[in-house]
Design a protein around this nucleic acid. Structure first.
Length: 687
RNA sequence: GGGCGCGUAGCUCAAACGGAUAGAGCAUCAGAUUUCUAAUCUGAGGGUUGCAGGUUCAAUUCCUGCCGCGCCUACCA
C-alpha cells in the first residue's frame, strides 16, 4: 500500500509544478521522515527549487502546501524546518486497507527474466562462499516472483574445466582408482567431501614436480575433447558432485530449472557460431605481434570507448595502439577458446541471439515434484524452452567483474545493445574467514595472516567451511534448544522445527550484509539465534500465533470488520505521551526532536511498517540489494516485540481495543510470514 | 603501475537520488517474568564517520589529494 500512496503523491506534485511553475522535474525525491510524527512522507524539493525559482525554500514549500489541494488518502501537508514538506496520510484509511490485505495491481513487464546463480565447479563440496551466492540468487528470484515476474533459474556447470581435471588426475594418478572404483565412491553419501580432500591433494601434487602439471594439461584436453575414458570419468565425478550440490541447496529450499553445462557448449559448437559473428563484427582481431602473437584478442573492457560495429574499422586501424596489457585473449594461439569466449557464446544463447539451442534432458526431480533439466547433446523430445529471455541477472562474485564486463562489451560490439542493457552482473563480495575462525579450523596462520581482518577461503588448499557442515551444526544447535523448550512434541516435529530455525538463521545471516561488504565469517555470529537474526523474526511470528491459539481464534481469517481505527491510531489531544521511549526533550531541541510519542503513534509505526512490504520489495529489485528486505523484516519484528511486551492483548478489558490489538497482531504476523517467505525462510509453528 | 571496492561505537554491520537528532546487533553494566513461553523487553555508557582540502542552503554520501586494507590485472576457469 505504502508505495501506491507514494506514487500518487509524486504525481500530484508533478502536476502542481507543471501547472504553477511550468516545471518538469526528472524525479520527485520522496523520503521517509525520521519520526512518524512528522508524517509518512517528506519532500525536500523546495530546497532544490529555491535556486530555479529565486525564492526562499520555505516560501516555496508554503506555496506548494497551499496549492496542491486534496490528495486521496492524505490528511494534510505541512511545512517543517527550513522548507521540508511533510505529508500525513489518513492513518485509518491506510490501516483498513492493510487489514483487508488490499494491494492495488501494478503493471508488470511481460518479458521473462533469467537468473543464473550458484554455478559451483562440480569438483568438490560447496562451501560458505557458495552459500552466499545461492542464497542471494534464490532470494532475488523470490523477489522477482513476488513482483509478478516470470523467472527461469539456471545454474551453470563448468564440467570440463581444470578444476574437474584436477580431481580426475587425483583419482587416476594419486589414488590409481579404476572407473569402477570411482563409480562406487561416487554413490557414497558425501562424495563431494571426498573430492574436497582429493582436490587439495592434487593441487599440492602439482607443486611437487613440474612434470605433474603436464599430466593435468593432457587430462584437461582429453576431457574437453570427449569420447574417451578420461572424459567418462570426469562425467561420472562432475555429475555425482553436481547431484550433491543440488541436495545441499535443496536443504535450503533452493531449486533450479535448468543446468546448462560447458560440455554442451563445446560439443554443440556454440563457440564456433559466436566466433564467426565476433570476427565479422570486428570485436575480435588476430594479433600478429608481441606477447599475444597468434591469438584472437579483444580490447579489455574499460580501456577505451565501447566497441560497436560502426567503429570496428577504427579499432582495426588502431589495433597497434592497443598495448598487450589492454588485450584480453579469447582464443589461444593453439586454437582453443578460453572461458570468456564460451561465456560470450552462452550469453548470446541466453538472449536468443546465437541461432543454436541445447538439447534437454530430465536430471533431478525435487521432492515437491519440480523437475530440473540439464543440457545434453541429444535431448528428450518433450522439453520446456529455456533461454531467449528479455533480461538476465548473473549472480557472480565481484572478482569476476572484469570477465563479466568483457561479455557485455562483446555483446555491444556485436550490436546487441538491447541485450547488453538488460544484462546485470549481480555482483557481491566474497565470504572470508576471520583469523580466529581459521585457527578454530586448525589452519596454521602466518604472522602476516593473523594481522589481517579476514582470510580468503581456498578450495585448492582445502581451506574453508563446507556448506553441509555448517547446516548440520546449525540444525544440531537449534535442535538442542527446541528439545529443551518443547519436550511435549514428537522428536520428528522438533527435528522439523530445528531445521526451519537453522535455515532461517543461515539465510538471514547471508542476507543481512549488503552485497559489497566482505563477510568475515565467524561461527559465533553465524550460529547466533538472538538479536538481528532469522530466528528473532521467526520467534515474533510464533508469539503472534500463540496469542491466537491461546484465544482460540484463527489468525489467518481474523476480521477487522467494525474496528474504529481512528480511535486507536490518532493520538487524542489529552493523551499523555508514553514514558520510556524517544523522550529526552530539552527546550532548545524540542523542535528537532518533535513532540513526545503517544501510544497511538507507536501503534501506527507498527501498522505503517506492515504496509511497506511491497515498497521494500520494489526497492530490493531496483537496487539488486536483498539486504533491505532483511532490514525490514528485522524492524517489523522488533516493533512487534515492543508492542507484544506493552500490550497484554488477551487480558485487555476493553473489547473494542482488544479487537484492534488482535487485528494488529494478525496483520503483522501475515506480513512477517510473507516477507520471510521472500527470503526463503519458513515460519515454524512453535519455538 | 592500472582497474574495482572498502575504511562509521570495543567487535560485526546500517544509514534509499546529498537532507531533519549518524542507527542496529553483539559485548559490558543496571533492571523487567503471578501474564499471549525471556530465542524477549527497558535503560546506561560507548562516535572528530581514516586524514586534509573542495563543491553545496545541507556531505558518512559527490569531487581532488594523501594514508591504510582487500580483490582483479594469466594463452587458469
Amino acid at each position: 500500500m505504502y508505495r501506491h500512496l507514494e506514487s500518487r503523491l509524486a504525481q500530484h506534485i508533478r502536476d502542481f509544478l507543471r501547472r504553477t511553475y511550468k516545471l518538469e522535474l526528472e524525479r520527485i525525491v520522496i523520503e521517509q521522515p525520521p519520526n512518524v510524527q512528522f508524517g509518512e512522507y517528506a519532500l525536500p524539493l523546495a530546497f532544490e527549487l529555491a535556486k530555479k525559482l529565486r525564492k526562499a525554500p520555505r516560501k516555496i514549500a508554503e506555496e506548494i502546501v497551499g496549492g496542491i489541494g486534496a490528495v486521496e488518502g492524505f490528511e494534510n501537508f505541512e511545512v517543517a524546518g527550513a522548507g521540508y514538506i511533510n505529508a500525513r496520510v489518513n492513518r485509518a484509511a491506510l490501516a483498513l486497507a492493510v487489514a483487508k490485505n488490499e494491494e492495488p495491481k501494478t503493471d508488470v513487464p511481460s518479458g521473462k527474466i533469467l537468473v543464473e546463480h550458484t554455478s559451483i565447479n562440480p569438483n568438490k563440496a560447496a562451501h560458505i562462499g557458495h552459500l552466499r551466492n545461492a542464497i542471494l540468487g534464490d532470494t532475488f528470484v523470490r523477489l522477482l516472483q513476488f513482483a509478478g515476474r516470470k523467472v527461469d533459474v539456471q545454474n551453470y556447470i563448468d564440467n570440463t574445466g581444470v578444476q574437474v581435471a584436477d580431481v580426475v588426475v587425483g583419482f587416476q594418478h594419486l589414488e590409481k582408482k579404476s572407473a569402477a572404483d570411482v563409480e562406487r565412491l561416487a554413490s557414497q553419501p558425501r562424495f563431494d567431501y571426498y573430492c574436497w580432500d582429493l582436490y587439495a591433494r592434487a593441487s599440492q601434487w602439482y607443486e611437487q614436480n613440474p612434470e605433474n602439471k603436464k599430466i593435468r594439461l593432457r587430462t584437461l584436453h582429453e576431457i574437453e575433447q570427449g569420447g574417451n575414458e578420461t572424459a567418462a570419468l570426469a562425467e561420472t565425478i562432475s555429475t555425482a558432485v553436481l547431484r550433491r550440490h543440488l541436495e545441499t541447496m535443496d536443504r535450503l529450499d533452493i531449486e533450479y530449472d535448468f543446468l546448462p553445462r560447458e560440455s554442451e557448449i563445446l560439443h554443440l559448437h556454440f563457440w564456433d557460431a559466436a566466433f564467426e559473428k565476433l570476427k565479422a563484427a570486428g570485436v575480435l582481431y588476430f594479433e600478429n605481434e608481441s606477447k599475444n602473437k597468434g591469438c584472437w584478442v579483444m580490447r579489455r573492457a574499460g580501456t577505451s570507448k565501447p566497441l560497436t560495429a560502426e567503429n570496428a574499422e577504427i579499432n582495426q586501424n588502431a589495433e597497434n595502439s592497443v598495448s598487450e596489457e589492454d588485450q584480453k585473449v579469447i582464443v589461444r594461439s593453439n586454437g582453443t577458446v578460453g572461458y570468456v569466449g564460451k561465456d560470450i557464446a552462452y550469453h548470446m544463447w541466453k538472449f536468443g541471439l546465437l541461432g543454436k539451442d541445447f538439447g534437454y534432458r530430465r536430471f533431478f526431480l525435487y521432492p515437491n515434484g519440480h523437475q530440473c533439466w540439464i543440457s545434453s547433446v541429444q535431448g528428450e523430445p518433450d522439453h520446456p524452452h529455456f533461454g531467449d529471455v528479455a533480461e538476465i541477472y548473473n549472480v557472480i562474485d565481484a572478482r569476476q567483474s572484469e570477465a563479466q564486463n568483457a561479455v557485455i562489451e562483446a555483446l555491444r560490439g556485436l550490436g546487441f545493445n538491447d541485450a547488453a542493457d538488460h544484462y546485470t552482473h549481480f555482483s557481491y563480495e566474497m565470504v572470508a574467514l576471520t583469523p580466529r575462525c581459521a585457527a578454530e579450523l586448525g589452519y596454521e596462520l602466518s604472522e602476516d595472516e593473523r594481522a589481517r581482518p579476514y582470510i580468503e577461503v581456498s578450495g585448492r588448499k582445502g581451506f574453508g567451511v563446507k556448506a553441509d557442515d555448517l547446516i548440520d551444526k546449525l540444525i544440531a544447535s537449534a535442535k538442542k534448544e527446541v528439545d529443551s523448550r518443547h519436550a511435549e512434541l514428537d522428536d520428528s516435529e522438533r527435528e522439523k522445527i530445528a531445521k526451519q530455525i537453522a535455515i532461517g538463521a543461515l539465510r538471514y545471516f547471508m542476507l543481512k550484509f549488503t552485497k559489497q561488504s566482505v563477510i568475515a565469517f565467524d561461527f559465533k555470529e553465524a550460529l547466533s539465534f538472538e538479536g538481528e537474526t532469522g530466528p528473532y523474526a521467526q520467534y515474533a511470528v510464533v508469539r503472534a500465533t500463540n496469542i491466537f491459539r491461546k484465544g482460540r481464534m484463527d489468525a489467518t481469517s481474523f476480521s477487522a470488520e467494525g474496528i474504529d481505527f481512528k480511535r486507536f491510531l490518532m493520538p487524542a489531544v489529552e493523551e499523555r505521551p508514553l514514558q520510556g521511549r524517544v523522550n529526552h526533550v530539552s527546550s532548545t531541541d524540542a523542535v528537532l526532536k518533535g513532540p513526545l510519542l503517544h501510544e497511538a503513534d507507536e501503534l501506527w509505526e507498527l501498522w505503517l511498517a506492515a504496509s511497506k512490504t511491497g515498497f521494500i520489495v520494489d526497492q530490493c529489485i531496483a537496487t539488486t540489494e536483498p539486504a533491505y528486505l532483511a532490514k525490514h523484516v528485522f524492524q517489523l519484528a522488533q516493533l512487534f516485540n515492543t508492542f507484544y511486551h506493552r500490550h497484554p492483548i488477551l487480558a485487555e478489558a476493553d473489547e473494542q481495543k482488544k479487537k484492534f490489538l488482535l487485528a494488529t497482531a494478525a496483520v503483522v504476523r501475515r506480513e512477517l510470514i510473507r516477507a520471510l517467505q521472500v527470503m526463503g525462510i519458513e515460519s515454524p509453528p512453535a519455538m
